[in-house]
Amino acid sequence: MSNTQSLLTIEELYASVEEKQIIKGLNLDVKPGEVHAIMGPNGAGKSTLGYVLSGRDGYSVESGSAVLDGQDLLEMETEDRARAGLFLAFQYPVEIPGVSNLEFLKASVDAQREARGEEAITSAEFLKEAKAACKQVNLPVSFLKRGVNEGFSGGEKKRNELMQMLLLKPKLCILDETDSGLDIDALQVVAEGVNSQRSADRSFIVVTHYQRLLDYIKPDFVHVLSDGKIVKSGDASLALELEAQGYAWLQKEPAEDELEG
């Protein structure tokens, strides 16, 4: 491995929700520009990992550490983690009735700019960027005026999440089962959006149950999460192996000594 500094380093992370331990000693190292896929059976803790890293209320860290770009994530407020460059694309984005997408997005962008000591973006400039982002994710511009996720279809919600990502330009994007509920066309749009954002200073953690998404978003690494920890890591071929064999063979024989790349 090169001596590039890690963007995200998770060490021996234990976390629980409602007093039930879900993450049980997880280690992960993500370098700038890398795409890591996290796969695993239902209930393995895939979504929980995103919630814990982003600081969702009710998810408590028992021990371990998570460092993003030199900052101790676990000590930070939810909004500060976002401002530090962590973005989570939700599996089930919630509606905020009456708050227009544009208003919401501009407030988010401005909050993040302010945290970086930058001036608020002008409305005209933002509108231009937002329209371009709409186009890129194949959403009509009229969606900017609609309430956040209000009455959006499943696919529209996912594309809306992606649009937010395009505008917020995070360092680390966690895509939480972004492929669930998408037809193949929508899947391709989402994948193209993600691929267009891949760059040397942006990393992705793609959480998914199915290999399908990884046909379009080629991961550098694939990890299998089972019972709260990574039991196997490999390259993109591991995903194909999982597709063919399922997860059962990994659960039977947890490979204790497997460490991620």
Binding site: S54, E79, A82, F90, V94, S108, Q112, L168
Partner: peptide, 13 residues
Amino acid sequence: DEQMYLCRQRGLD
């Protein structure tokens, strides 16, 4: 809580 979480995850206090 979900609405609050979404807003805060996008950087809003």
